[in-house]
Design a protein around this nucleic acid. Structure first.
Lengths: 152, 152
DNA sequence: GCATATCGTCAAGATGCTTGACTACCTTGA
DNA sequence: TCAAGGTAGTCAAGCATCTTGACGATATGC
């Protein structure tokens, strides 16, 4: 089996910032999703994680969710359909705008959020141990710096 | 339009390592893909980028590609089908193994690779300017640290 | 030389997105 | 005030990317 991956190919793996970010993001998501499923939230998927990250505990208007997700409203709607069918969230009419709907967690959804918070803390703790406090904080600071709106 | 994104919602955005990594990775990919398409490589997509990153300039055996991608061989095949139809890569029989095929770039594919390299350098340069050299290097060092195989 | 494994392919299906078209409702302004 | 235009949500159809299963052709090991 040694032959399958020859040495030249192995050395050709990239090392630029985009690749590293993608790898790290991918690894984190996989670790988180696996832990969530292990915690009994079999409905959890990486695709849904992005959406849940935009729904605060007290709920939100569906339109606000759409704006913040940066994807089409139909895509958001389909994700919500799935989560609603799983009993994770529910949609009620928005009393302030009869066109709109309000998205909130069910108790099942809130329980999953709590578990997710604990898992995040666990993963972060492991990252801190692996990198050391200083390097981890430098990483977070740099990532926050990249996320800021560009000045120019 | 101010009303669309209320302040409470804006403050609820997460700030843990996984979210930050995901955001940064997403931003980089979007920036790169947009630049590639602007450079005339309209066939470029983020999904295809992962595959191209695993094909060295001198080409590779399809089986090696499959092993390194970490996805099913059928998925790799379908991606290759698409790239071949676009004229970016070509598949020839592997002279050393009559079961196998060898994947190499066409001249069009090599030109795209060159453009991609320049775009990566440009983006990285912008990142260095935004973060400062020290912070950027700390970011890269931390990301490399996370990518290393775990000791425990 | 035969059993077993690998390489590539075809087919069918799931998921997560897209655009287009539509209804219901809200807001604006002459 | 009421018509025009914008916004919220939905339904439908389609595309890209991935999956699993089944298969023929070729290599490899004993």
């Amino acid at each position: 089996m040694v032959k399958l991956l020859d040495e030249k190919d192995a050395k050709a793996l990239p090392d630029h910032i985009g690749w590293r970010l993608w790898q790290a993001s991918r690894a984190w998501k996989a670790e988180f999703a696996e832990a969530m499923r292990a915690a009994g939230h079999g409905w959890f998927s990486e695709g849904r994680a992005g959406l849940l990250g935009h729904i605060p505990r007290r709920g939100t208007r569906q339109a606000a969710l759409i704006e913040r997700m940066g994807i089409s409203k139909q895509a958001v709607q389909q994700l919500l359909d799935g989560l609603e069918a799983e009993g994770v969230i529910e949609r009620t009419p928005d009393p302030e705008d009869k066109r709109g709907k309000f998205v909130r967690y069910t108790s099942k959804g809130l329980a999953a959020l709590d578990d997710g918070d604990h898992i995040k803390i666990d993963i972060e703790k492991r990252y801190r141990e692996r990198l050391g406090e200083g390097s981890f904080e430098a990483l977070m600071a740099a990532l926050r710096g990249l996320a800021e709106p560009q000045a120019s």
